[in-house]
Design a protein around this nucleic acid. Sequence first.
DNA 1: AATGAATGAGTTTTCATTCAT
DNA 2: TATGAATGAAAACTCATTCAT
Lengths: 225, 225, 225, 225
Amino acid sequence: MSKPISEPEPIAPAAPKRRAGRKSEVSSRDLLLRAARKEFATKGLEGARVDQIATKAGVNKQLVYHHFSSKEALYQAVVEEAYARIRAEEAKLDLSEGDARDAMARLVAFSFDYLAANRDFVALLTDANFHQGRHLKTSQTLPQLHSHLVDMIKETLARGEAAGQFRADVDPMQLYISIAGLGFFYFNNIHTLSSIFERKFSDKEQIADRRAHVVDFVLKALRPD
Amino acid sequence: MSKPISEPEPIAPAAPKRRAGRKSEVSSRDLLLRAARKEFATKGLEGARVDQIATKAGVNKQLVYHHFSSKEALYQAVVEEAYARIRAEEAKLDLSEGDARDAMARLVAFSFDYLAANRDFVALLTDANFHQGRHLKTSQTLPQLHSHLVDMIKETLARGEAAGQFRADVDPMQLYISIAGLGFFYFNNIHTLSSIFERKFSDKEQIADRRAHVVDFVLKALRPD
Amino acid sequence: MSKPISEPEPIAPAAPKRRAGRKSEVSSRDLLLRAARKEFATKGLEGARVDQIATKAGVNKQLVYHHFSSKEALYQAVVEEAYARIRAEEAKLDLSEGDARDAMARLVAFSFDYLAANRDFVALLTDANFHQGRHLKTSQTLPQLHSHLVDMIKETLARGEAAGQFRADVDPMQLYISIAGLGFFYFNNIHTLSSIFERKFSDKEQIADRRAHVVDFVLKALRPD
Amino acid sequence: MSKPISEPEPIAPAAPKRRAGRKSEVSSRDLLLRAARKEFATKGLEGARVDQIATKAGVNKQLVYHHFSSKEALYQAVVEEAYARIRAEEAKLDLSEGDARDAMARLVAFSFDYLAANRDFVALLTDANFHQGRHLKTSQTLPQLHSHLVDMIKETLARGEAAGQFRADVDPMQLYISIAGLGFFYFNNIHTLSSIFERKFSDKEQIADRRAHVVDFVLKALRPD
DNA sequence: AATGAATGAGTTTTCATTCAT
DNA sequence: TATGAATGAAAACTCATTCAT
């Protein structure tokens, strides 16, 4: 089970090198990036205000244009960083231990927990899709990024199948989408769902319930006949 | 299997009665509603332009304020109409025929097909959730709206369990969320997914593949041990 | 001798028709156009401030964007109107009376006087040329516009030549440019010239001197050998 | 006939002495001045960007403020240098040889050629005039600068008159303005003119035509009766 | 002499909304 | 029901200039 990611350390590969040992000062660029993530995740690309982002970051508004060249470019940087972040997290995931069922359970749980801990990411991803994926230009990054996870699914499926724990003929890609969707939809539409079922789905208990259901649901679906 | 919803007839319960025999002219209110749905679904609440909506509807901008009192109110009307529309569609669904497995398959397929045919609805729902469900105020409508579906799920589950076709202990609400999520996520994040897996998920064939997977996945998960 | 053009009546062919008899109210569009001419002529395209233009016109700044769609478009409208204005003025010029020398003198004087009375036009023309003529797009308008004048020059030259008053072989186009240039340069570079020759060339007397010189200079140049 | 001025060597009287033998490196001040001339000539005072100038010069923006104290001061420096440059060029002109008509022809041609070769100068001069000559403060420089030329005109006129080649009563100052204007207007308004007469006046042949006309025109105007 | 980061004061432009008819 | 003109508030973005090094 993955532990929730708390305050995210800046992951900005292309950031200008900073003089090491320069105290623990955070670069204004990172401050902006962090504030922007929150703002964009909450309000979306159009709803977000450059002013707000600068204020939250505690820097001058014009620095946004100094470091990034436009609101849109900042948005893109935020989206890219969000992907880089999840990739870094996923890399830590090791499914080789234990039996296949257990490994698969860990993977599903990880996926769910990541979304639970990174609601910003959910919102950002949705918003980016809203804009026709216009901000996902880095065509290689994305496939690369997920190949690891899909590979792990593939291997685990094979392992489970060999051990008679999983049925055959499961498409890893579709399974990946299903695993993601079972959690994503819950968080993405949490307000509608809360309204429909008249309960607060953002409560810890409800989330735990959903998590249990999702893990169970996937494992049940993979049982051999 | 449900047939895709084509050009949606105006469903506007609160619409002022139209002068009968007044040719086959569509009321400007409906024109606006229709144009607004497209615009809001494509651009979101903030991204949408009142000007654009009026232009697309072929009416004067001021009419927006005549019929609805603000952009936000128009948005709400659009969202509500979208819900009303799906409710009307669902009402046609009859799961009493055939055995439980078949009924459940029809339900999952219907759910998937509805999203496939109403991508606007997917976008709208997501956008509404982005705004903290602020536009879903009609607190009674939503639960009512879905109770039919959840009831059908409950009944079908019971029927299948009794017949030894489904396992016991499946939470109908969680199942409902899962069914919706398996399709919703696919359409909602279609750009990211297409980018990740380097294929056009909006293609008919890919959609058909996903549909098959989803139906199969749910049925497999419901099998008795 | 042409009488100086005083307060220019709005010449805006494409302007929306106004309800006749609507008092003597000037449309805000015309107010803007007039204010913009002054502002652009004084400060140039970049130096001009939309705010200032609106203030001078006594209307709301956003009306600029309502009537014209951008500062640049307003600039273009102003330039075009300036041309339309001079064309209208030129049309009144009749060189058929009197002998050729007299007619030519009237033409040169008219040209000079027009610039003297319309210093805005001089400035505007220069500024438009500064911008690579990017705002002179109406490709047909311009040639048409001047053909009348060039035709008059041609006829007058022919008439004078026939009467033994003018030498032959004078290129009408080059003559046109010379006539224009002899006056234009004076007004366009009036500050430098004033500085160089340490006198105020904007004074009435200096202008009259220059006028006399120009008329004389051209006529002398045209004398038969 | 003057030969066109090609790549202008820096003429900056007030420039700080450079460390001799310091390779053939051009001082950043000169690089800036050169880049600024281009930029100001092309875009005008307001249109020019300090950033652009620095970039074009290949130096840091702050150096602009190091060497000159403001954009406006840099502009002034550029304008002054432009005048110094033409003065240096004119100094080379010697009209004492040959007869008066020939000398005058050389002078007119020189004037025309200088403008043809230094289009930047034309633009700069115009722009400076646009700003009410605010940047021509060096009140003594300018008169001095031109006195040589005017003197030459005066002498040549006198010589020609004495030889019966020129008519009397020609005002040297007005003649100077006319000579300058006949060329200046052509280059200054080259876009409008090209548009009007539907030909590319920037073409070599057109320029040659104009040059011939101007020289001829002036000489014809100076003929004795 | 040289530089990258930072900033204050604008400037154009956008946009929902209202007015007058 | 319908419309074109008008507006206030705010938004993104620009740009000359200065700071710290």
